[in-house]
Amino acid sequence: MSEPGFVSVSELGAGMIALRGDLRSKVFRKAAEAGTGLKLPAPCTIVWDGARALGWMAPDELLLVVPEGEGAVTVAALEHALAGQHALVADVSDARAMFHISGPGAREALAKLTPADLSPAAFPVGTLRRTRLGQVAGALWAEERGLTVLCFRSVAVYMRDLLADASHPDAALRVF
């Protein structure tokens, strides 16, 4: 990025685990909650504390976000808790990239890239949506401090350029 845009974009390092299984199963729910210390989120939402997050990705898929370097130990704990269950635990820390977009105009910058309605009314804090960002798939969620974007690591450079372009200082919008 040659000059700073109207929002700040930073790439975050984090441990990320894809957890798939039957969300109605007590054992599965308990394992997911124990892996993060967080309550299972409602559909299309994400919950977090300072260090960890638990997101609802699909009717049979959750995302666990843990501090960088804690992916392997969390996977081991989940596999232990889910032994004998029909479930899948995958450490996707290196397969995904995560960006945080903050500052006034963060929603506007992302609204240029996705068909999702990012107005605060339609996309309140805690909402998680998997959608399209430019030409690639991604997930995004709203926090008090801004928005977090998740995409495949293979398109992380594209995403970084896309975000830099959308937040160009000459292209600021005030919509929301």
């Binding site: 559909p43 299309c44 699909a58 009717p59 068909p115 959608t131 399209r132």
Partner: peptide, 12 residues
């Protein structure tokens, strides 16, 4: 009908 979201044509 699974996640309840209104999906745009380009997301489908």
């Amino acid at each position: 009908p699974y996640c309840g979201q209104m999906a745009d044509e380009t997301e489908l």
